[in-house]
Write a protein that binds this DNA or RNA. Sequence first.
DNA 1: CTGAAAGCGCTTACAG
DNA 2: CTGAAAGCGCTTACAG
Lengths: 344, 344
Amino acid sequence: MRRLTIKDVAEIAGVSTSTVSRVLSDSPLVSDDTRKKVLKVVRELNFSPNVVARALKKRESSTIGLLVPDIVNPYFAEIARGVEDIAHKSGYSVVLCNYDADTEKEKKYLQVLLQRQIDGLIYAGSGLLAGSIVNLLQAGIPTVLLDRDTSEILDVDTVCIDDESAAQLAVDHLISLGHREIAVLSGPEYLNSSRGRLAGYKLSLARSAIDFKPELVVSGPFTTEAGFELVTKLVRSGARFTAVFAMSDMMAIGAIKGLQRLNLRVPEDIAVVGFDNIKMSELITPELTTVAQPMYELGSQAFAILKERLDARHSERQRIVLKTRLIVRDSCGANLRTDKLSLA
Amino acid sequence: MRRLTIKDVAEIAGVSTSTVSRVLSDSPLVSDDTRKKVLKVVRELNFSPNVVARALKKRESSTIGLLVPDIVNPYFAEIARGVEDIAHKSGYSVVLCNYDADTEKEKKYLQVLLQRQIDGLIYAGSGLLAGSIVNLLQAGIPTVLLDRDTSEILDVDTVCIDDESAAQLAVDHLISLGHREIAVLSGPEYLNSSRGRLAGYKLSLARSAIDFKPELVVSGPFTTEAGFELVTKLVRSGARFTAVFAMSDMMAIGAIKGLQRLNLRVPEDIAVVGFDNIKMSELITPELTTVAQPMYELGSQAFAILKERLDARHSERQRIVLKTRLIVRDSCGANLRTDKLSLA
DNA sequence: CTGAAAGCGCTTACAG
DNA sequence: CTGAAAGCGCTTACAG
């Protein structure tokens, strides 16, 4: 069963393919009469144009690439949702790429996406090779970096949060609750986001005249497993602390599990703050106090500025910083006196 | 900066575009010498062919559509990962579509995907319009249905689980622990999966000579919110039960929250089994006993059978049923005597 | 307002 | 083994 083409439509409607093409793309260069005639045939045949032919001709594929480390990570899933929703509304399709922490996969995906003539790329997460991004920019494909602040290094559009002040939200909260020995479960050290959050932590300590103790800072990937293992080690090392600041909710959740395994109560013995506010954070017990990142908005804004660049290629570089806020729940003890049953 | 084409390569290498095309697609109809010559130029120019042109000519886009209700739902995120991993390995890109429960969006996506000349479609979740799928099949685009057993209705490839026996795993476990009043938090009633699981529940009861009580069955969407509200209502209605079988982990997690709010302990007062085994299920407290679905495999198998159909269009209809298994953790009390600390 | 023609960047049957 | 030519299904500058 051959697919229909504008040629079929043209013949039946008794016009040229040019005309069919024009009505299909809402060109004003068509009389109302012919437009109606053509539209009628289109409807009758249930005709739907071949967008890959269009893409070839126009050199615009109306598709963008979305690179995330792993869509299974709820943080990236929410971002992806934000991207896809807005892209779809604007007539773009998004091809999903999970590159893990794998440099080879990352290169491979970039190559595939280039071959597919994507109009733009949204790059989330940590894997970015300096080399790859340079290639992209050289190839002239509009790119926005999500969740990575590379302002110093590269001239790319970017949407992110202010990691430093976001971290302060968390740490100040702990301090206000009386904590002075605050351990930190950091993400990978090579990430700007980890560094920024650590800087925020130090700042908060300094403001309250608390000494910074390097031995209270441990780092690993943003996973529950890492959270579990890092606290466990920390406790066993004999380090003294009454609270922990985890740089992701996944780590915080792992940490809470770890503390519970060690027979430590959260928040009574140790308080825990997370970071991200993934949905899961309010489903665990105790409900997690955390710094909320607007994941969905990170995604939708990323697409929005990509779109701006696609529409008008001259625009200035944009750097969007989204707001974070502290969500106080139960894992730091701030709500200890509240009778939770009254909420039900 | 114009993108390079095979014409550029051909000129520099001193051969025809046909030849360049042949070496690029590994045709055997090229001598070793010319192949080397061409490859050298390709490498030097860092040339990468335009796959949309290829797609137009070959009428194969090497892309597939993936329709999920919502990628933020961890169940679908894991499935998506399974699909994407294997698709990528086979040289296919996947276009992500979140259609929610929205019939209009669903139609729109289907239309867009058709226009994009996707080679195949993987359709997960519940939204399937009978009408849409018929259109698809008529359009001749290979489709596999994931997570929906439509064997009676439609002649489509399908990968799913045996809902009936999976549910029995859960319910039998509860019964073996002495429970006889088992409430069920069902998914939407119009779904085959909900119906199958309910059938399994009834079968298990019958086998143990337990009367089926319709008032213990309530249904709603597969969400934590529904789980929370459904148990809450059930308890307040005065219904008597000592255990609940939730048809998804999200519902089970919501139910546990709800019970806790009501000052009921899980599993001491009420046991809860879930369904799916999403990652979150072992992160909550108490850790959730659940029936594991192989989400990743559902996704990868779905792509695998789609690929088979793409490679050899004559294949018979396939229906793959994947294994489920019971994961015993803490939410039913089966492990009550185990000293959990010994695990740490 | 409309159509004929050229062309987007590939692939492949055909001829040699 | 290699190349010239036609064509995939559109869009759009050009001429009228």
